[in-house]
Design a protein around this nucleic acid. Structure first.
Length: 476
DNA sequence: TTTTGAGTTGTTCGA
DNA sequence: GTCGAACAACTCAAA
C-alpha cells in the first residue's frame, strides 16, 4: 500500500514562513516537499541565468535544512516527475503558489490537468504578489498601462494585501529517498571560482532575508526617499534577490514597512513594491513583454549592430567611469544599484544605440535578482518603448549623473580603482582632464583605462534624431 | 463622446 | 551659480 502524502511543489517561494501552500499541506497529513529544476519547458532565453543558478543552489541547500533535510529535488519535465511520484505514493493533494511567467502559466495548467486526470486535486495560492494581476483593472475592465493610476487607484483602493502567516506549527515532512536527487547533482554551480566570491557577501537563506529586512528598516528606510539615489550609501534595501526567489514574500515586507508609520520614506519604498506589482501586471496582460516592444512603432527603430561596443559595455570597458563601475559591480557582485542600472541602461540604448534586448539578456544572466517581469518591464521603460515610458529626450548624461549622485566618487573608485587618484573634478570625464593631471594620477588613457568608446554629445544627438524618426506618421 | 490633466528617476540653454 | 523653459507628441485614465 503506497504511503499517503500531500505534495508541496516549491518554485519561486523558497521559504517556510508566510507560505500558504505549506500550511495547507501541513493540515492534510504527511507532506512531501519538492523542487523540480525544469530545464525542459522554458524558452531558451528564459532558462535560469548563471547568477540565478548560483543563488538557487544556495537557496535550495538552505530550504532543505529548514525542512529537516526533507526537500526532494528532481530535474526535468514536471509532468514526468509527478507521474513517477504518483506511481510510488498515494498523493492526496498537490499545493503550489502561482507563477506568472507566460511559459510557467502554460506549464502549470498542463500539470494541473494531468494531476486532475489522475484524480489528484490541485490547489494553488497567491504566494508571490500583493495583488493578483487580474484583480487590478480600470473601470472599463481593461488593464492599466500607466504606473501612477495603477498603483494609486488600482492597488491602494483595492482589498489590502493578505497578512503574512507564520510557518506551520506541526509539519510532518517526508522525503522521497530513492528517487530524489542531491542538490549538487542539479549542477547549478558553474565550475569557475567566479561564483564563490559572487555569493560570499550574501547570506542566501530565509534567515538572511529577514536579517537584511531588519537591517534595512533600521539603517536605510529612514533615509530612503533621497538616499536611494546615492550608490555609495547603504540606504537601499538589497532585498530584490530574496524577493525574486521568495525567501521573503512581498506581504512580509509590505507589512513590516507599514508598521514603521506613514512617512515619505515608507510611502516611497512601498511604491517600489508597487512597481514590482506593475511589472507583473504588464507581463500577465502583455505576455510578449520579454521580447517585443510594447509600443509597436519601436519595431522600426534603427538599432545598431556593434558587437565590440556591446562587449565593452558588458565588461565595463566603455571608458565612461560610472558606466564601467556599474557593469563591474554587476559582474563582481551579481547586483547593481538601481540608479546605476538606469545610467548603464540609458547608455546602452541611447548612446550606443544598441537594442534593449541585449541589455535585458546580459542582466538576466548576471543578476541574482533576475526576474522576468521586472527585467523586461524595466528595460522597455529605459528604452522608451514600454508602458508609461520615459520621454525620448530623457537621455542620461553619465558625467552629470556621476557628479550628482556619486559626488565624492566613492562608488566609482570602488569598482574602477585604476582611476582612484584622479580628482573628483575629472573622475567622471577623465578624457577632458589635462594630461599632466592624469599623468600625476598614474593614468594613461588607452593604456590603464579605456578612452571613451563613444562621444557623449554626438551620440546623444544621434539618439535624439533616431527617436524623432519614430514620430507617428513618419515612415522609417 | 469629448475633454482635460497627467505621465518615476533628465539635460541643456539662456536669462 | 541658479532657475525656468524647452525638448514632441501621444496615450492613458477618468470625468
Amino acid at each position: 500500500m503506497p504511503q499517503a502524502v500531500s505534495i508541496v511543489w516549491f518554485r519561486q517561494d523558497l521559504r517556510i514562513t508566510d507560505h500558504p501552500a505549506l500550511v495547507a499541506a501541513s493540515n492534510n497529513g504527511r507532506v512531501l516537499p519538492c523542487f523540480i529544476l525544469d530545464d525542459v519547458n522554458p524558452p531558451k532565453q528564459q532558462q535560469h541565468g548563471a547568477a540565478s543558478r548560483v543563488w538557487l543552489h544556495h537557496s535550495l541547500t538552505a530550504l532543505n535544512q529548514d525542512l529537516d533535510n526533507c526537500l526532494s529535488c528532481y530535474a526535468g519535465d514536471p509532468i514526468r516527475v509527478f507521474a513517477q511520484l504518483a506511481e510510488r505514493y498515494d498523493i492526496q493533494h498537490v499545493y503550489w503558489h502561482r507563477c506568472y511567467e507566460p511559459w510557467r502559466i502554460q506549464r502549470d495548467q498542463a500539470v494541473k490537468k494531468f494531476l486532475q486526470d489522475l484524480g489528484i486535486p490541485v490547489t494553488s495560492f497567491n504566494g508571490s504578489l500583493l495583488w493578483e494581476p487580474w484583480t487590478i483593472q480600470k473601470k472599463d475592465g481593461t488593464p492599466y498601462r500607466v504606473f501612477t493610476p495603477f498603483y494609486k487607484k488600482g492597488c491602494l483602493t483595492a482589498e489590502p494585501p493578505r497578512q503574512p502567516i507564520p510557518a506551520p506549527k506541526a509539519l510532518h515532512c517526508i522525503k522521497d529517498p530513492e528517487h530524489s536527487q542531491s542538490i549538487t547533482s542539479l549542477n547549478l554551480l558553474p565550475a569557475q571560482t567566479w561564483q564563490q566570491s559572487l555569493a560570499e557577501p550574501w547570506q542566501i537563506d530565509e534567515a538572511g532575508a529577514q536579517i537584511r529586512l531588519t537591517q534595512f528598516i533600521q539603517q536605510g528606510l529612514p533615509f530612503y526617499k533621497e538616499g536611494r539615489n546615492v550608490p555609495a550609501k547603504p540606504y537601499i534595501s538589497r532585498l530584490s534577490s530574496y524577493l525574486r526567489w521568495g525567501q521573503l514574500s512581498p506581504n512580509q515586507i509590505w507589512y513590516r514597512i507599514q508598521a514603521q508609520g506613514d512617512t515619505p520614506d515608507t510611502q516611497h519604498f512601498c511604491s517600489e513594491l508597487g512597481w514590482r506589482e506593475f511589472s507583473y501586471h504588464l507581463l500577465f496582460h502583455f505576455p510578449t513583454l520579454p521580447n517585443t516592444n510594447l509600443q509597436a512603432k519601436f519595431n522600426a527603430f534603427p538599432w545598431q549592430q556593434q558587437p565590440t561596443q556591446l562587449r565593452a559595455w558588458q565588461q565595463g570597458r566603455t571608458g565612461i567611469p560610472i558606466v564601467d563601475a556599474g557593469m563591474r559591480e554587476l559582474w563582481q557582485t551579481g547586483f547593481m544599484h538601481n540608479r546605476v542600472r538606469m545610467i548603464v541602461g540609458s547608455f546602452l540604448v541611447k548612446n550606443l544605440l544598441l537594442d534593449w534586448r541585449h541589455g535585458e539578456h546580459w542582466f538576466w544572466d548576471c543578476l541574482f535578482d533576475a526576474d522576468l517581469a521586472n527585467n523586461s518591464a524595466s528595460w522597455q521603460w529605459v528604452a522608451g518603448c514600454g508602458a508609461d515610458a520615459a520621454p525620448y529626450f530623457r537621455i542620461f548624461n553619465p558625467v552629470t549623473q556621476g557628479q550628482k549622485f556619486d559626488p565624492h566618487g566613492t562608488y566609482t573608485r570602488r569598482y574602477v580603482p585604476e582611476l582612484k587618484n584622479v580628482p573628483d573634478k575629472y573622475l567622471f570625464n577623465p578624457w577632458e582632464a589635462p594630461s599632466l593631471l592624469l599623468q600625476e594620477a598614474g593614468v594613461l588613457l588607452g593604456k590603464h583605462y579605456p578612452k571613451p568608446i563613444v562621444d557623449l554629445k554626438t551620440s546623444r544627438e544621434a539618439a535624439l534624431s533616431a527617436f524623432a524618426s519614430l514620430k507617428q506618421g513618419s515612415a522609417s
